[in-house]
C-alpha cells in the first residue's frame, strides 16, 4: 500500500482491487457441505479446539448462494459429480475451492469405477490438502494459504477446468512445491 506523507496521518492509500482482495480473503464464507470422512474433520475445525473463526472463516452457509468458498470434503462419486458442478455454478463470483483430502484431490485409495479421480475434473481447485483425512490444522493451513493467494491476486475465480494442479501443499514440511 502506498503511504503518502502529504496527507493527514491515519489515511492509507490503496487500490480498490487490493482492498477488495483483502476484504474477500479476511472473511471467507465456506459452504456447509460435507461429503464423507473429511467433513467430520471439517466439523472439528469449526469446533472449539481448532476454531476456524480465528481466521475469519467460521460463517458456514448452507446455501451455495451465500457462500464463496467450497471445501470439497470427501470422495466425489460418479453420481455426485453433476451435483457438485451444479452447486459450484450456483455460487456467486468470486469463489474458491479447497479440495480437502486425498479423495477429492486425486481419488485417494479408491481408484475404481465409482469415484471421480479428483474433483478438479469437475470444478477448478485452488488449494489441495493431502491427508486421509487431513488434520484440522492442515485444513486451517490450507485456508491461510488460500487467503495469501487471494491477497496476492494469484487465485482468480473462474479458471478453466482441467488445468494442471495449481499448487500442492505438503503439510509435514509446510513447504509448497
Amino acid at each position: 500500500m502506498a503511504n503518502s506523507h502529504d496527507v493527514v496521518p491515519g489515511v492509507v492509500f490503496s487500490t480498490v482491487d487490493k482492498v477488495a482482495r483483502w476484504a474477500q480473503s479476511s472473511s471467507l464464507w465456506p459452504f456447509a457441505f460435507g461429503l464423507a470422512c473429511c467433513a467430520i474433520e471439517m466439523m472439528s475445525t469449526v469446533a472449539g479446539r481448532f476454531d476456524i473463526a480465528r481466521f475469519g472463516a467460521e460463517v458456514f452457509r448452507a446455501s451455495p448462494r451465500q457462500a464463496d468458498l467450497m471445501i470439497v470434503a470427501g470422495r466425489v462419486s460418479m453420481k455426485m459429480g453433476p451435483v457438485i458442478k451444479r452447486l459450484y455454478d450456483q455460487m456467486p463470483d468470486p469463489k474458491w475451492v479447497i479440495a480437502m483430502g486425498a479423495c477429492s484431490s486425486c481419488g485417494g485409495v479408491f481408484n475404481n469405477y465409482a469415484i471421480i479421480q479428483g474433483v478438479d475434473k469437475v470444478i477448478p481447485v485452488d488449494v489441495y490438502v493431502p491427508g486421509c483425512p487431513p488434520n484440522p490444522d492442515a485444513l486451517l493451513y490450507a485456508v491461510t494459504r488460500l487467503q495469501e493467494k487471494i491477497r496476492s491476486g494469484e487465485a482468480r475465480p473462474g479458471h478453466k477446468i482441467l488445468e494442471p494442479a495449481q499448487e500442492v501443499i505438503t503439510v509435514e514440511s509446510g513447504r509448497t512445491s
Binding site: L35, F110, N112
Partner: peptide
C-alpha cells in the same frame, strides 16, 4: 451419492489392505 465401490476395491486388495477401506466406510 457416496457410492465408493469399497466392496469391489476390497476384493482387489489383500486382507490387510482391505482392512484400511473399512475405516472409511462408517467413518
Amino acid at each position: 451419492f457416496l457410492h465408493t465401490g469399497i466392496e469391489k476395491t476390497g476384493e482387489s486388495l489383500n486382507y490387510q489392505q482391505a482392512l484400511t477401506l473399512t475405516d472409511r466406510m462408517d467413518y
